[in-house]
């Protein structure tokens, strides 16, 4: 893979950036997530995490199923603050 291939669309992270980080020795998906902010945007990693896992598997010689998913955060889908904070009458 070469050129500017966007893997994480929420935070504009490219395939090159992911590969470079793995090459620098960072191979724990929880660390890759935080350094590149993959899966930390509104989509919660639905788009990017499977792609990151396949890149990580290829580069580390592991099978994709050996790579754990990063911890999922609530809420599963974005929720409006006003809904959770309640109205003035509460």
């Amino acid at each position: 893979m070469s050129g500017k291939v966007i893997i994480c669309r929420c935070n504009d992270v490219t395939a090159d950036e992911i590969e470079a980080l793995i090459d620098s020795g960072v191979t724990d998906i929880e660390e890759i997530k935080r350094l590149l902010r993959i899966g930390m945007g509104p989509c919660q990693g639905r788009t990017c995490i499977p792609l990151v896992i396949s890149i990580l598997a290829r580069k580390t010689g592991k099978r994709p199923e050996e790579i754990p998913l990063p911890k999922t955060r609530v809420p599963i889908r974005p929720v409006r603050v006003g809904v959770l904070a309640g109205g003035d009458d509460e």
């Binding site: 955060r73 929720v79 006003g82």
Partner: peptide
């Protein structure tokens, strides 16, 4: 802020 969305809690 009430119009913004919450995307994560930890």
């Amino acid at each position: 802020l009430k119009y913004a969305h919450v995307i994560r809690q930890w």
